[in-house]
Structures are given as structure tokens and as C-alpha cells.
């Protein structure tokens, strides 16, 4: 019984993990059809800011929840103004530019901080469930995944800003005609997407080793989730994360991590074959 509970918790954790990794990317991709190839480096930057500020004496939660998203968000705005803004609608060029930026960020961080910085321990300790103990931090991950999805949904659905964002997403020319300055919408969206990614990076930091090249461990999962889910930020991210997280974690428990990883890839492959227009292109068409 305890074991079943542990498996369910781990699956929820895996789903939240994918939601956290992918939502920043999904916000940017969903709004402006720009694929941020430096997504992994934004995560890394969030992680670095968290551990550097924490090692300098800032309380861990402030580092994770305030400093990481704020800094990465501002950095995102800067990047949008300087680079991305010139490349809207040129998907290949923007891929190249963001990829170049990812290399630049890896090199820059290595140059500034070096390859090895002491990380931070996972806070909060463990929770005993029968014979098992799980990190309480898992619940933080699950909580934030829910919070990010719920906030995005509420903003898009109920606020004026959300309405403007959706209008710009659906038809930028028409939105412009109605007096919306779409470039500002894009800039804000890119900033918010970056901030969410920074937050995810901050949340990831106490779980794994933070080094300049860490992004390779996360970009695969982020991109697969967004591509499988499709362009609608919430339904797409949620459905893809749930599906892939459950399948991969189920396989991991049943057989081992190698097959868990393989199952995630296989599930994504099958899905894209069956639904070439991704999940939200086919099933939840009208959703956000």
C-alpha cells in the first residue's frame, strides 16, 4: 500500500517536473512561435543565480523564488530587445541565434564562475511514509507546477492583459490594427517565459549538480514535452507532461531508468506519428 502511494507520488513528481521544465518554453513558443534554443541555459542561469546568491548568504527560498526568476526574466527581456525582436517569423534564423546564445552563456558562466561551485542541499528534509521516506521538496515541485499552470490560465482567461496576449497570439495584425502594441506584448511574454524558466532553474538547483553544461540534461525533456503538447500553453503542457511523466515513471518503477527514458521517447514518437499536429492541434483545439 505504501509502495503504491510512493509510486503515485513519484508519478506526480515526474509530471510536475516536466511541467516546470517545459512551461517557460511553452509560453514563449505558444505566444510567438519562437523556439528558444537557449532554454536549457536559462534554466542553468536560474540555477546558478540560486546557488551563488545562496552561497553569498541570501536565504534559499528568496534565491529560488525571487532572485532567480527576476534576474532571468530581466535577462530574457534584454535578449528579446537585442536579438529575438529582429527575428520574428524567421524560425531558422531564430534557432541559430538562440543556439549561438546558448553556447555563449555556457562559455560566459564557465568564465565567470568556473566549472565547480558548491551547490545547495535539498531543503526541508524527508517525510516518512511507512517504510519509505520521500523528500518533502517533491511537494514543493508539485505545488509550483500547479501554481504556474493555474496562474497562467487565470491570467489568460480573466485579465485584460491575458485578453491582449490571446488576441496577439491569434492574429497579430488584427491586434495591431486595434491599437495593441504587439512588440510590447512579445517583449513581456518573452520576459515572463524567461522568468518562469528561471524559477524552474532555481527549483532544480537543490536537486542536482549545477554546472555550466547542465542544460543538456533538461532540454531534451523540455522540448519533447512542448513539441508533443503543441502550441497551446496550458492544455498542451499539461496533457503532454501527464502522459509522458506517467509512462516514463511507470516504466522506471517497473523495469529501471534506462527503459523509463526510452519509454518517454517512444511515447513521444508514437504520439507524433498518430497525431502529427500534436495533442492540442487535434484534441483540445479550442483550449488555452
Amino acid at each position: 500500500m505504501d509502495y503504491v502511494l510512493i509510486i503515485v507520488l513519484e508519478m506526480l513528481r515526474a509530471i510536475s517536473w516536466l511541467v516546470l521544465l517545459a512551461s517557460g518554453l511553452a509560453i514563449i513558443f505558444g505566444m510567438m512561435r519562437v523556439i528558444n534554443f537557449a532554454h536549457g541555459e536559462f534554466l542553468m542561469l536560474g540555477g546558478y543565480i540560486t546557488i551563488m546568491t545562496h552561497n553569498a548568504g541570501v536565504p534559499l527560498w528568496i534565491s529560488i523564488l525571487v532572485l532567480a526568476p527576476l534576474t532571468v526574466g530581466l535577462f530574457g527581456v534584454l535578449v528579446e530587445r537585442l536579438i529575438i525582436r529582429h527575428l520574428y517569423g524567421r524560425i531558422i534564423d531564430s534557432l541559430l541565434a538562440t543556439w549561438g546564445r546558448s553556447l555563449l552563456m555556457i562559455g560566459g558562466i564557465t568564465l565567470i564562475f568556473g566549472n565547480t561551485v558548491q551547490g545547495v542541499s535539498t531543503p526541508l528534509g524527508g517525510l516518512a511514509i511507512g517504510d519509505y521516506q520521500v523528500p518533502l521538496y517533491n511537494f514543493v515541485l508539485i505545488g509550483f507546477a500547479i501554481a504556474i499552470m493555474a496562474t497562467t490560465w487565470a491570467v489568460l482567461k480573466f485579465t485584460k492583459a491575458g485578453l491582449i496576449a490571446r488576441a496577439t497570439m491569434q492574429n497579430p495584425d488584427m491586434a495591431e490594427t486595434l491599437g495593441i502594441r504587439t512588440t510590447w506584448v512579445y517583449m513581456t511574454t518573452f520576459g515572463i517565459g524567461s522568468a518562469v524558466t528561471g524559477l524552474a532553474g532555481g527549483l532544480v538547483a537543490p536537486l542536482t549538480g549545477v554546472v555550466p553544461s547542465m542544460s543538456v540534461n533538461f532540454v531534451g525533456q523540455s522540448f519533447i514535452t512542448v513539441i508533443t503538447g503543441g502550441a497551446s500553453m496550458i492544455a498542451g503542457t499539461l496533457s503532454a507532461s501527464t502522459l509522458l511523466g506517467t509512462i516514463s515513471q511507470g516504466m522506471t518503477f517497473a523495469t529501471g531508468p534506462v527503459y523509463g527514458d526510452a519509454a518517454l521517447l517512444l511515447a513521444a514518437l508514437v504520439l507524433l506519428r498518430v497525431l502529427p499536429q500534436d495533442i492540442t492541434g487535434r484534441i483540445f483545439k479550442k483550449s488555452l
Partner: peptide, 29 residues
């Protein structure tokens, strides 16, 4: 090498209660 989450493995170890864990893990992930 890109696995960063070890919750399932740790639960399995907690269930099996071995005397020692031998790790051949490599890399920052």
C-alpha cells in the same frame, strides 16, 4: 547519463534495505 531524478531508485533501495549501496554513477546529473 541525463537522469537527474532518482526518487524511484531510492524508494526501491528503501524497500530492499541492503547493507551497502555500490554506486558507479558519473557526471553532474
Amino acid at each position: 547519463l541525463d537522469v537527474t531524478q532518482f526518487g524511484s531508485t531510492i524508494s526501491k533501495i528503501q524497500a530492499a534495505k541492503p547493507d551497502i549501496v555500490l554506486s558507479a554513477l558519473v557526471g553532474t546529473a
